[in-house]
Write a protein that binds this DNA or RNA. Sequence first.
DNA 1: AGATATGCTGAGATTCGTTCTCAACAAGCG
DNA 2: CGCTTGTTGAGAACGAATCTCAGCATATCT
Lengths: 134, 134
Amino acid sequence: MTAAPKRNTWQREAVRAALAEARGFVSAQELHQTLRDQGSTIGLATVYRALAGLAEGGEADSLQSPDGENRFRSCSMQGHHHHLVCRICGETRELEARVVEEWAQRVGAEHGFTEIDHVVDLYGVCERCRARAA
Amino acid sequence: MTAAPKRNTWQREAVRAALAEARGFVSAQELHQTLRDQGSTIGLATVYRALAGLAEGGEADSLQSPDGENRFRSCSMQGHHHHLVCRICGETRELEARVVEEWAQRVGAEHGFTEIDHVVDLYGVCERCRARAA
DNA sequence: AGATATGCTGAGATTCGTTCTCAACAAGCG
DNA sequence: CGCTTGTTGAGAACGAATCTCAGCATATCT
C-alpha cells in the first residue's frame, strides 16, 4: 500500500484543537498567534503544514479572504458543501446546496465544459451582529 | 456631488485596452508584462491602480486565483453576474444565475442572516482544451 | 525498555504578489 | 500660459506562504 506514513504529534493536535475552538474561519497566522499566546512554541511553518494536511484530509475547509489570505475552519459535515459566513463576527454555517450543484453541472454542460468544479460562498450579517450594530 | 476628480491618462486607456484584448482572466503582472512587451513604459503600480479603478467602476471583474493572485477580466455584462472559467486556457463565460440568487437569499434568510452577498464561480475544462488534452 | 531510522519540526531565509513612498510630471482649468 | 492637483513610476516596504536543513521525536523493531 502507498499509505502515507503520518505521525501523530502534539503540534498537529494543538492545531486541530485550536481550529475546533475558533468560531469561524481563521487564518494560519491568527491560529499561530493564538497558539503562541497560549504558551505553545509551535512554529508558523508547522501550522501551515498541519492546516494543509487537515484540509486535504477533509477535516478542515479552506477559502481565501478578499485580501489574499487563506482561511481555515474546522469542518464537521462530510463531503461537499458550502458556507454562510457572517462578515462581522465570522460565525459560520455549513450548507447543503443541491440546487446549486445541479445548476453548476447543467450550466457547465450547456457551455461544453467538463469537470465542473465550483466555489459558492455566502456572506451576510448574522442576527446577533445585526442586533448589536442597530 | 462628491464626484471623485479622475483624470484621463493614456496609461489608464492602455490598461483598459489590454484588458479588453485578453481572452480570459489575467493577473496584474501578466498585463503589465504584456504592455511592456508592446513597448509601453507603464509602471507596475499604475497597472494595479488602473485595475483597481476599473474593478471599482464595474468595468472589470476581479477574482482570486487559487494561488492567491488577483485576476481581472474586462466585463461587459452590466450588473451582478457570475463566471464560468476554463481552468486550462482561461476562457471565460459570463453567466446569469437567477436560481442561485434566489437560493442565496432564501438560505440566508432561513439562517437569520441579512445583507446577503455571495461568491459563485464555476471552473471546468472547455471543449477546446478537453479535445487538446485527450 | 532501549536502540534506530525516518518523518516532523521550527527559525530564518526566500519567493512572490501587492501596496506604499515620494519626487517629477502632466491633465484640466482659469 | 501658468497654476493646481491628481497621476505616474522606480524602488522600497510589506505580508503571506513556502523552502531549507540540522536537530529532534515518534513509531517500530529487538
